[in-house]
Design a protein around this nucleic acid. Sequence first.
DNA 1: GCCAATGTACGAAGATCATCGAACTTGATA
DNA 2: TATCAAGTTCGATGATCTTCGTACATTGGC
Lengths: 114, 114
Amino acid sequence: MGLAGIDASPRGAGESVWHPERDQIELTCVLHALSDPMRLRIVSELAAGEARTCKSFDLPVVKSTCTHHFKVLREAGVIRQQLLGTTRVNTLRRKDLEARFPGLVDAVLRGACR
Amino acid sequence: MGLAGIDASPRGAGESVWHPERDQIELTCVLHALSDPMRLRIVSELAAGEARTCKSFDLPVVKSTCTHHFKVLREAGVIRQQLLGTTRVNTLRRKDLEARFPGLVDAVLRGACR
DNA sequence: GCCAATGTACGAAGATCATCGAACTTGATA
DNA sequence: TATCAAGTTCGATGATCTTCGTACATTGGC
């Protein structure tokens, strides 16, 4: 599932962590990523607003656990993480997900708000 | 997640195993149930056709593993299992899922066929 | 240059999961 | 009645997952 492989070009405001390409996003991985309440909450909040840093989510777990959940979401192709100074800015990969699995994210988000 | 509780009325052609009510179906459970390739395959085949017995799926695992996967799907509210003689007839709970999470199953199935 | 803030990496602990094999139950059938 | 076929139940095993704590890296500001 998560293979870093060779990543080059560390930069300031761009990418430097591995993300799957749009075509590499797998349905089972996305479903698994979304099947955890904490991660579903992250995605919901991310869908509601704009780009958010990891810390701006007030999750009831320690930092390293946050890192884990954001990593699962990123490697599944659900979110994109961009380096900005000492923080990571998270965004939902709406377009990519919509292109690959039309209607899925909307249906999940609608169900998550219940 | 899966609690049998008190189940009464064993019958011939009806239910006798526990199923969640429509309102009890939880999004995270459904997503988790669908996040396994084997179970996704079961659901896809079930969506394509009619009611199917467990054995009619030619899954590459032993019987007890099949039982496990069907149980996960049933307890998540994805499928319904009805006793018919010595077999279990499986159907997709399309209406219930559609009522609770509109568009979700269709989106997943569309993505599963890829 | 030093320090605080944001986050990662690593290892460990406990829980859950997928899989198997063997024994069992139940209904149909020869 | 004895047997067979479809499934379940139970225990075990190895893998994966969630969580934590500690140490480390990087950046921005004093």
